[in-house]
Design a protein around this nucleic acid. Sequence first.
DNA 1: ATTACTGCAAAGCGTTTGCATGTTC
DNA 2: GAACATGCAAACGCTTTGCAGTAAT
Lengths: 131, 131
Amino acid sequence: MTRYSRQREAIRKQLSNRGDHPTAETLYAELKTNFPELSLATVYRNLGQLVSWGEVARIDAYGAARFDWRVEPHSHFFCRECGCVIDLPEADDIVPHNLEERFDGVIESSASNYFGLCKECKEKSDKIAKN
Amino acid sequence: MTRYSRQREAIRKQLSNRGDHPTAETLYAELKTNFPELSLATVYRNLGQLVSWGEVARIDAYGAARFDWRVEPHSHFFCRECGCVIDLPEADDIVPHNLEERFDGVIESSASNYFGLCKECKEKSDKIAKN
DNA sequence: ATTACTGCAAAGCGTTTGCATGTTC
DNA sequence: GAACATGCAAACGCTTTGCAGTAAT
């Protein structure tokens, strides 16, 4: 059976308070300030549990995994400049019609990833281009 | 300038001969039989170059990266059972209309990933279910 | 009292890098 | 002979695991 743990509760709270998609390391650093004895392994272990319980989504990003409080399927944008990950305005993780008919296996889920420059990085590069 | 190398040529050939999406390790193991002095680092270095030259695509899969001779954008299916990666019948990596208008950055590319059971694994699990 | 959860450190995996040597131009 | 490419091993970054101790039920 699963038991209460202060650490898990803190991780849950921290992740739900942030709207974004922190890495385990980021979460760890933040929690560590008010929780000096916390260990990174505990963060990973708890995130793993939350994911397996369907409370949290794991975004297998390029580099370190990111964790997302929003579990409903939705798309993500990855900025190639600053590495940030942004929720896209609406879910479009819909399997295109015909695809399932023409594919011989079973498609259970899908994820669309978009790549480019986020607003901030776009503005920065525009500025540089003007000079 | 870039120079000829037997190793790079062998990697190119091996990757283009296979229709699938091998990992660096798989490629290395295969080439090693006819090329005993080959080093894994060389495989990684050359794959990296081929990717940066646009000759090969890197699929940042879950676990180890996979490499794909097909560079035109197309979707991939990941089997949760055997871990295989399959090209999907047709490219649908099209940025949904409206999305670019409602997103404040620049979307340069996208990738759709599908997850589930491949044909073989589906048949296996069907068989087990019948017993 | 039982057994889940913790912290720590060590190991794991995939990948990259430093360096001396070999190869291509 | 200049510079790119190689092989090897060591280091890397992210993540998991083994273990002895702590804490929740």
